[in-house]
Design a binder for these strands. Structure first.
Length: 502
RNA sequence: GAGGGUGUAGCUCAGUUUGGUAGAGCAACGGCCUUUUAAGCCGUGGGUCCAGGGUUCGAUCCCCUGCACCCUCACCA
C-alpha cells in the first residue's frame, strides 16, 4: 500500500464521516438549471431569482456559522454564501467536511453582497463528488486594474502531465483549447461550404509517403507484416481524387519519428485538402480565406499579436517567388546556378551546408537561414526546386522548379501546397530519384509506391493540394509560445516509479 | 544528438555562501468569528531537500553518475 500523505488521509477520514452521516459522497445526478456566467449576466436587483448550479469548490472563506465560497462550472466562477441558519444544522455539518476541489450542487436566491458581488445565498447544498487529492490553491487579486496571481500553478512538467489539474486551476489554458476547437470547426465549416467531402484514410500504412520524414514502425500480428504510422495523408487523398471526388479533405493525426521541441510533437494534427481542376494559385486563395475566417472566430478583427509581433491576416497575403525573396535577403542570384556556385554563395553567406546536399537542399538551407525568420506577416513563398518536391508538378515556365508554395507566419512554415503532379511517368521518375536519395543515405526520402503510380495511370485530373499544420496555426492564433500549450497531452517521457509514486 | 538551467512541504519559493539532516506564504488540522473576497486573529502538524554512488566523524549542501523537465542549437511541420 502506498504511503498516504496526511492531506489525503484527512480527506479519506472526512469521506467516511460523510458516509456515516448517511450522505452518498458520489451520487448519480444533479438537475442543475443554471450556469455561473448566466446567473451573473442576468442579475436584476429588482427581481428575486432562484438559481441551481453545480461546480467545483475553488475557494472558501469561513466565518464561523457562515461562509463565502467560489464554485466554478464550465462557464466560470460565482460566489456562494452559506449560512447555518439558512441550510440547517445537518447541511452545515456536511459543509464543514468539504474541501476545496469538491464538486457540489447548490440552490438558492441570487443576491448582491455588500461589496457588490453577485452571489447565491445557498438554501440547499449537496455533495456531488468528494475530492481526495489537494488541488493547488491559486489566489487572485485585482490591484489597480491588474490581475495579480499568487501561488500560480506554474510547474510546466506537472501542468502537462496532469493537464486535468492545469485546466481546473488555470482558466487561460481552458480558453486556448476552446479556441483550438473553434479554429478547427471554422476551417471545417469553410471546406464544407465549398462542398468538399470530409474523409478518413488509413493511419496504418504498408508504405509511408507524402512528406519527407522518418516514420514510426509497428507490426500487425495476424498478418505478420510491418506497418508504418502515416507521416501524411496525401497519397491516399489523391487516390480519392482519381476515384472521382472533386474535393476531399481530412483532419487527422500524423506521426513523425523525430525530435521534440516547442514546435514539434511526435503526433500532430494536420489538415490536407485536394481540389480537382485547380492549381496552386487557387489554393493560395483558399488558405488565406480559410485562415482569415478562423482568425475572425477567435479575434475581433483580422489582426492579432503573436509573441509581440502584430500580424495582419487580411487577404491577399504577400506572394513572393522563392528566387526573388532569396535575392531580396541575400543579394544573390540563386536561380540557374550550379552546385559549386551555390556552395560558394552559401559559404559567403555563412550558411553551413551538410555533406551530400544537392542543389535543392542548398537553396533550402539558405532560405531557412536567411529568409524564413523574417517572414512575420502572412506570406506565400512560391516555386521550389524540383528535388525537394517529388509530388509537385513541374513549373509551367521555370525549369528546375515546381509549382509549390509554402505559407509562412511569424517566421514559421504553416502550410505546404502544390499543383499536384498527375503525370504518372514523371511521378515514377521522381520516386526513382527519391529511392536513389534513400540509397545515398537520406533516411527521409520517399519510397516507391507502385499502387499510387497505378492510380495515376488511370488518370487524375489537374489538382491543387494543400496541407496545413493545425497545431502551429492554433499556436499563432492563441499567442502560445510552445506547441505543448495547444496539445492537451503533449508527449512526455513516462513517469517512473509506478503507482506508489503518484 | 550538443550546450546551458532547474529539481527543497499538497502549491509557490527562501536557505544551507564557509558541510552539523531545513524555513516562509498559501493549503491542511484545532479554536474564535453570520456580508467576506489573496478574509482575519491564536495555536498545531507536515519534508527519503530528484535518485544512486563517492569524499567525510557527519552530505540536502562538495564530487561523480543517472533521471525528469525547461531553454538554446542541430533535424523536422
Amino acid at each position: 500500500m502506498e504511503e498516504l500523505t496526511d492531506l489525503r488521509k484527512i480527506r479519506l477520514e472526512k469521506l467516511s464521516q460523510i458516509r456515516e452521516m448517511g450522505v452518498n459522497p458520489f451520487p448519480f445526478v444533479f438537475d442543475r438549471t443554471d450556469f455561473a456566467a448566466d446567473v451573473i449576466k442576468n442579475f436584476d436587483p429588482d427581481e428575486k431569482k432562484q438559481a441551481k448550479l453545480a461546480g467545483r469548490l475553488m475557494a472558501v472563506r469561513k466565518h464561523g456559522k457562515a461562509a463565502f465560497c467560489h464554485i466554478m462550472d464550465a462557464s466560470g466562477k460565482i460566489q456562494i454564501y452559506i449560512r447555518k441558519d439558512q441550510v440547517g444544522d445537518e447541511q452545515f455539518e456536511l459543509f464543514k467536511l468539504l474541501d476545496i476541489g469538491d464538486i457540489i450542487g447548490i440552490e438558492g436566491e441570487v443576491f448582491k453582497t455588500r461589496t457588490e458581488e453577485i452571489s447565491v445565498f445557498v438554501s440547499d447544498l449537496q455533495l456531488l463528488s468528494k475530492n481526495l487529492r489537494p488541488l493547488p490553491i491559486v489566489k487572485e487579486k485585482i490591484e489597480e486594474g491588474e490581475k495579480m496571481v499568487y501561488d500560480e500553478f506554474a510547474d510546466k512538467e506537472l501542468r502537462y502531465r496532469q493537464r486535468y489539474v492545469d485546466l481546473i486551476v488555470n482558466p487561460e489554458v481552458r480558453d486556448v483549447f476552446l479556441k483550438r476547437t473553434k479554429i478547427i470547426n471554422s476551417m471545417r465549416r469553410y471546406l464544407e461550404d465549398q462542398n468538399y467531402l470530409e474523409v478518413e484514410t488509413p493511419i496504418l500504412q504498408p508504405l509511408y509517403g507524402g512528406a519527407n520524414a522518418r516514420p514510426f514502425k509497428t507490426h500487425h500480428n495476424a498478418l505478420d507484416i510491418d506497418l508504418y504510422l502515416r507521416i501524411a495523408d496525401e497519397l491516399y487523398l489523391k487516390r480519392l481524387i482519381v476515384g472521382g471526388f472533386d474535393g476531399v479533405f481530412e483532419f487527422g493525426k500524423d506521426f513523425r519519428n523525430e525530435g521534440i521541441d516547442r514546435f514539434h510533437n511526435p503526433e500532430f494534427t494536420m489538415m490536407e485538402v485536394y481540389v480537382a481542376y485547380k492549381d496552386y494559385y487557387f489554393m493560395m486563395e483558399l488558405v488565406e480565406n480559410m485562415v482569415s475566417q478562423a482568425v475572425q472566430r477567435v479575434s475581433k478583427n483580422l489582426k492579432l499579436t503573436y509573441q509581440g509581433n502584430e500580424i495582419d491576416f487580411a487577404p491577399p497575403w504577400q506572394r513572393k517567388k522563392m528566387s526573388d525573396i532569396l535575392k531580396e535577403y541575400t543579394g544573390e542570384e540563386i536561380i540557374g546556378k550550379s552546385k559549386s556556385e551555390l556552395l560558394a554563395i552559401a559559404k559567403k553567406l555563412n550558411v553551413p551546408i551538410g555533406d551530400g546536399a544537392d542543389v535543392g537542399k542548398i537553396i533550402d538551407e539558405i532560405f531557412s537561414e536567411k529568409v524564413e525568420p523574417n517572414l512575420i506577416q502572412p506570406t506565400f513563398i512560391l516555386d521550389y526546386p524540383v528535388e525537394l518536391s517529388p509530388l509537385a508538378k513541374k513549373h509551367r515556365s521555370d525549369q528546375g522548379f515546381v509549382e509549390r508554395f509554402e505559407g509562412f507566419i511569424a517566421g514559421k512554415e504553416i502550410c505546404n501546397a502544390f499543383s499536384e503532379l498527375n503525370d504518372p511517368i514523371d511521378q515514377k521518375a521522381r520516386f526513382e530519384q527519391q529511392v536513389e536519395f534513400g540509397r545515398g543515405g537520406d533516411d527521409e526520402a520517399h519510397m516507391m509506391d507502385e499502387d499510387y503510380i497505378r492510380a495515376l495511370e488511370y488518370g487524375m485530373p489537374p489538382t491543387a493540394g494543400m496541407g496545413i499544420g493545425i497545431d502551429r496555426i492554433v499556436m499563432i492564433l492563441t499567442d502560445s509560445p510552445s506547441i505543448r500549450d495547444v496539445i492537451f497531452f503533449p508527449h512526455m517521457r513516462p513517469e517512473k516509479g509506478g503507482e506508489d509514486s503518484l
